[in-house]
């Protein structure tokens, strides 16, 4: 597609040998816009099928169970290390100001507001996102999705709505689990250089927390889960070019989901700051 710049911007803008502006140079922009358009249509299909019977309860429970259970050990280990390291790294600075007693409170606010949700969501994007992308991608290239369609089953309803709902509701639960394990890691780290009883640690940690820390952080985890589910399903569902395409689908599911998590986080933080919606 070619546009005549002289016609659009007048003679001053168009130089003699640059009259024709070749839009094919902007293939990457076109590709990104196509992806955004495709994802929007896909999301629209998801919501349309979500409220239309029959409902796939059994598959939804199966997916929720698989997603939750498969990521529990990984999230547990990461969260424990996260709490431990965060406390160990923060301790010298706090000690310099003689504020070691604030350590449980500082760590709990950091974990609940930001680190817990974001790190957990990123782990889920890697583990769950790649799994969904690869699974649906391989179903696409082996014609299993087509087989579902020709047997009168709606694959969006059976494969996509169940997975997206499962990630949307399981990731907030996984974040709570991750926060709890991080507190445990932090408690052990605090006790490496001194002594604090567990009830006192928990008391100090929860004392520092307010609803306006917890509620926006929890709400954004639903969006994280939704983004991971819908992006991974989209990349897998429209995978092409055989096994190479499956790999690409899994890879881009992780990359785009991770990027989406940071963008959602940025928007969520800005919104909660601007409107201060949940100040109790």
């Amino acid at each position: 597609m070619k546009l005549n710049i002289r016609k659009i911007f007048g003679n001053k803008v168009a130089k003699e040998n640059q009259d024709e502006f070749d839009l094919s140079r902007f293939k990457n922009v076109e590709k990104i816009l196509n992806e955004i358009g495709g994802l929007s249509r896909f999301t629209n299909n998801f919501f349309r099928e979500l409220f239309r019977p029959p409902y796939e309860h059994t598959e939804l429970l199966k997916q929720a169970y698989t997603i939750g259970l498969s990521t529990l050990p990984l999230i547990g280990i990461t969260a424990f290390i996260m709490g431990l390291v965060l406390t160990l790294q923060s301790r010298p600075v706090m000690a310099e100001f003689g504020a070691e007693s604030w350590l449980p409170g500082m760590v709990s606010v950091s974990i609940v507001r930001e680190i817990g949700p974001v790190i957990t969501a990123l782990i889920c994007a890697g583990k769950i996102g790649s799994g969904i992308g690869a699974e649906l991608g391989s179903m696409r290239v082996t014609e299993q999705i087509d087989a579902m369609e020709v047997s009168g089953t709606n694959p969006i309803k059976y494969l996509v709505t169940t997975r997206v709902l499962a990630t949307t509701f399981m990731i907030p639960i996984l974040v709570f689990y991750s926060d709890a394990i991080s507190f445990l890691g932090s408690y052990i780290a605090v006790n490496m250089h001194g002594f604090i009883s567990f009830p006192l640690f928990i008391n100090q940690a929860f004392d520092a927390l307010h609803y306006n820390d917890l509620i926006p952080a929890t709400i954004k985890t639903f969006f994280f889960g939704f983004a991971i589910g819908i992006i991974s399903c989209y990349k897998g569902y429209f995978s092409e070019n055989g096994t190479e395409g499956v790999g690409k689908a899994a890879n881009s599911a992780v990359v785009i989901s991770s990027l989406a998590i940071f963008i959602i986080d940025l928007v969520a933080v800005q919104l909660s700051e601007i409107f201060n919606i949940f100040s109790f």
Partner: peptide
């Protein structure tokens, strides 16, 4: 179309069994 598809069976080249 879904109703019609129950009357038209399709055997895929790669079998397309749900693995």
């Amino acid at each position: 179309l879904n109703t019609l598809r129950t009357k038209v069976g399709f055997i895929f080249q790669g079998n397309a069994l749900y693995d």
